Amino acid sequence: MPDDGHLVDDVAGEAAALVVPGSGPLIGRAFAALRHEWQRNASLALKAAVSISGLSRNDLEELLEEDPALTPLYLRVLWAAGMNGHDETLRAMGATLGEAVRSRDCDDAESIADADQALLGMSRLTPRHFRVLRFLCSKPRPIAGADPSVWSTAYLAEELEMTEERMSWCLTDLGTTGLTISEGRWGGVHSWATPLGQAVVRAADQLGAV
C-alpha cells in the first residue's frame, strides 16, 4: 500500500497545480508547513472513519484505495483536508466515510451514493453549519397538526441568534449535502434533519467532535 504521506502530497500537488498550472508537484512538495497541516487534517478525518468503520487504519486505507466504489469518497475527504481546516467538518466527513464503509458490508449501494453526495457538499461547511444541524437534530420531524413555527427559518434564526439571511445560507448549504430538508409550507419555509444528518451528528457525538 502507498505511504499515506505520499498520497497526501500527491493530492496537495494537484491542488497547487490549480493555482500555478504545470508546477503542482513541485509546489505540493516544497511547502513543508502546508503539507504538515494537510496531513494533520487528513489524519483527523481518517481517525473518525476508523472509529466508525470498525476497521484498523491500515485495513481501512487499503480498502479505500482498492475499492472502486469507495475510492472517490476517500479522495473527497483527502481533498477537503486541504481545503477546510475546521475540525468539526473533518471529523464529520470522516464519520460519513466510515458509515459508507459499513454500508458497503451490507451491500447498500444507495447509502454509499448518499455518502458521496454528502461529502461533495460537506467540504464547504463550517462550525456555524454544524450548530444549525445539531439544533435541527434536537427537533423531531414535524407531524400533522404540529406548530409550524418551530421549524421555520425565522424561528431557527431567533433561537440560534442569527439573521434570517445567514440562517437561509446555512440551510441551503446543509440541504445540498442531504443532511437537512427544507420545504415551503404554511407559515414559510420549514427545515428538519434527514436520517443522514442525524447519523452524522450521532457519529460525531461518539467522537466528541461536534
Rank of each mutant, 00 (worst) to 15 (best):
I52F: 03
S103C: 10
V50N: 04
L73S: 14
L46F: 13
M167F: 09
T180F: 09
D105H: 08
T172A: 08
Y74F: 14
R128A: 11
E61L: 14
Y74N: 02
P140R: 13
L207A: 11
E88D: 14
G184H: 10
E88L: 10
V150H: 13
T177F: 14
C106A: 12
W38Q: 12
L64C: 13
R141N: 10
S23R: 14
W79E: 10
A45W: 04
A17Y: 08
T163W: 02
A209C: 09
E158A: 13
M83D: 03
W192T: 03
A115V: 07
V8S: 05
A30I: 10
G197P: 05
D3G: 08
V77E: 01
V19F: 04
R131N: 15
G188W: 08
G178L: 06
G178N: 10
R141Q: 15
A193D: 06
R102P: 02
A92I: 04
D4T: 07
W151K: 10
A113H: 13
R134Q: 13
Q206M: 04
A146P: 05
T96W: 02
M93V: 00
R76G: 02
D173A: 13
G175S: 14
M167Q: 13
L120N: 15
E158G: 15
R104P: 00
L133H: 08
T153M: 07
R40Q: 11
S23C: 11
D147T: 10
L78P: 00
G175N: 12
A42F: 01
V11W: 03
S191G: 07
L60Y: 02
L73P: 11
C170M: 11
C137P: 00
A17E: 12
W38L: 00
D114A: 06
D67V: 00
S152H: 03
